[in-house]
């Protein structure tokens, strides 16, 4: 059943406050309305992630129905994997909880621990099988300069992690500000295999931080694209469950 479901996520990597264009929290709210979850990873070392920056990181994720995490650059790779997986599972858990409440009048947390294990196992499996569409949105403002090698490593690592999932996945990469002074540029879209050598050249830190416009661009990409589904899989009647997710 979950094989027919596509999870849509934006993963924002930033080290500072937005200072150009539309409001990123509003952009995240809009994404959420379209069934897209927004995760945010804030990087602390060296950058200017002051308390306003931290608050914005949290507010964007909250508005976008995702999770936020503030970490040092060396924890970036692991964290990107964790937030992505966590949000996939959280989305499934929410639907399962809804079903459980209808069936048994309680969500998973209200079940005895041993029973809960069975639910956890199911959610874990489904999370691995669900198709995933992900747009990684990378802050390339000047303060990110020293962290870009780490970001490249982390993206390589994210891809390694996505490759071993049972479900299909498509990933795109955006940078903001863009490489020619525009707000956002697409470094790799869904159909391209992200070539990390190209990415290495493309990532050059410069300019301001138009976080809002970048989230908007990612949202547009996600609401246009659909993962191709195998045509021969018969509908097993769980289509309405899918409706909660996408």
């Amino acid at each position: 059943m979950w094989k027919n479901v596509t999870m849509k996520q934006i993963l924002l990597i930033t080290d500072g406050c937005s200072n150009r264009g539309s409001n990123p929290v509003e952009a995240a709210t809009f994404a959420r309305k379209l069934g897209i979850a927004v995760n945010v990873v804030g990087i602390v070392d060296g950058g200017d992630l002051n308390s306003a920056g931290r608050q914005e990181v949290q507010a964007i994720a909250e508005a976008g129905g995702g999770v936020s995490r503030i970490v040092e650059a060396r924890q970036l790779a692991m964290t990107m994997q964790m937030v992505t997986k966590h949000t996939v599972q959280m989305t499934i858990q929410q639907v399962v909880n809804k079903e459980l409440r209808q069936l048994m009048g309680t969500d998973a947390d209200g079940l005895p621990p041993e029973k809960r294990s069975d639910v956890a196992e199911m959610v874990d499996k489904l999370g691995d099988e669900a198709a995933l569409q992900l747009v990684v949105v990378i802050d390339t403002s000047a303060s990110m300069h020293d962290k870009l090698p780490t970001v490249r490593e982390a993206i390589r690592d994210l891809k390694i992690g996505l490759d071993v999932r049972k479900g299909q996945h498509q990933a795109a990469i955006l940078t903001f500000p863009g490489q020619q002074g525009e707000d956002v540029s697409v470094v790799a879209d869904f159909t391209q295999q992200a070539n990390l050598v190209d990415l290495m050249n493309a990532l050059r830190a410069n300019g301001g931080t138009p976080t809002g416009p970048a989230i908007e661009k990612a949202t547009r990409m996600l609401s246009q694209q659909l993962i191709e589904r195998p045509a021969n899989r018969e509908d097993d009647g769980d289509g309405d469950m899918a409706a909660y997710v996408v």
């Binding site: 599972q89 998973a108 621990p113 809960r116 294990s117 956890a120 959610v123």
Partner: peptide, 10 residues
């Protein structure tokens, strides 16, 4: 995190 504990225990 309940799921981690559940799965490891299982």
């Amino acid at each position: 995190q309940a799921p981690e504990i559940s799965l490891e225990h299982k």
